[in-house]
């Protein structure tokens, strides 16, 4: 009974997978996306990218939750954060996760970059992925900077003043950068509104496609060796084996039938040429 049930379940599963595969090709894509040869040596170091992705996902999820209570106005921003921290159910946990995973995110990105640098993973053909990664780093820094002000406490306020003033030192565009971020000529309600817009919509919307490109390029070139490098190597191996097999056949043929004129010396060379192709 149980055996039959199990086999039926397996068959249904197979049927569903085949059904999806025929219509969307999702199963192959998923396999292609999830499975990947990873070196055994230093394997833990290769999980830093996944850790970064996990923390960014946490940021998105807890950020969405926080938005249900946070009010981005000068007279309510701090109060709503206070409410989240003291009144809302599990508010302290959710904001804590948002806060601490943001801190860890920057640390893990640093480690991820260091790993990439010291293993030389930025070299050809992975340069574009390094550049995309740097763009992601800058976006994350932007998110960390804009998120700081949203608490609207002394700490975040003065950190933002310092940050904006650092922006004012940019050559030629200093005042424009300042006024763009401030939304006026001094820190005020417009600054909070702007930082909120940047933190909640603009930067996350920018970071998402770059994560997509980063992952696509990762899968294209692989963590330890590109997929095409593998297929290349494997096909070469097969070729060599085939060649050896042919040679053995030739050898056997020679013994059995003596030399046939058609397969004279030329036969060997043409076959070799075909293999090389």
């Amino acid at each position: 009974m149980i055996g039959r049930l199990r086999s039926q379940t397996i068959e249904t599963g197979k049927f569903l997978a085949d059904w999806m595969e025929d219509r969307t090709g999702a199963v192959t894509q998923l396999e292609h996306f999830l499975y990947e040869p990873v070196p055994k040596r230093g394997a833990w170091l290769y999980t830093l990218g996944s850790a970064t992705l996990f923390l960014i996902t946490l940021q998105f999820l807890t950020g969405i939750l926080l938005l249900f209570y946070y009010v981005p106005t000068t007279d309510h921003a701090w109060n709503s954060v206070y409410y989240i921290m003291n009144e809302a159910y599990f508010g302290q946990l959710i904001r804590g996760i948002h806060y601490w995973s943001a801190n860890f995110l920057l640390a893990v990105i640093g480690l991820h970059m260091a790993r990439t640098f010291f293993t030389g993973s930025y070299k050809a053909p992975r340069e574009i992925n390094w550049i995309v990664g740097v763009v992601l780093l800058l976006l994350v820094i932007g998110l960390a900077f804009t998120g700081y002000l949203l608490r609207w406490d002394q700490d975040g306020f003065w950190a933002s003043v310092v940050g904006i003033k650092i922006g004012s030192y940019s050559p030629f565009i200093g005042p424009y950068v300042t006024h763009f971020l401030l939304g006026g000529d001094v820190v005020g309600p417009a600054t909070l509104a702007r930082f909120f817009a940047l933190h909640v919509w603009l930067l996350p919307a920018m970071i998402a496609p770059f994560i997509g490109i980063h992952l696509y390029l990762l899968r294209r070139h692989g963590e330890f060796g590109a997929e095409f490098e593998y297929t290349d190597r494997i096909s070469k191996l097969h070729e060599r084996q085939r060649e050896e097999g042919y040679r053995q056949h030739e050898f056997e043929d020679d013994e059995e039938y003596d030399y046939d004129d058609e397969l004279d010396e030329e036969g060997g060379t043409t076959r070799h040429r075909r293999d090389d192709e």
Binding site: Y176, H179, F180, D185, G188, A190
Partner: peptide, 17 residues
């Protein structure tokens, strides 16, 4: 729409204060 503060302050010379 986005660059309103730059237009108001750097070009028109207005202030919020």
């Amino acid at each position: 729409f986005l660059l309103e503060p730059i237009i108001n302050i750097d070009i028109l010379g207005q202030s919020n204060v």
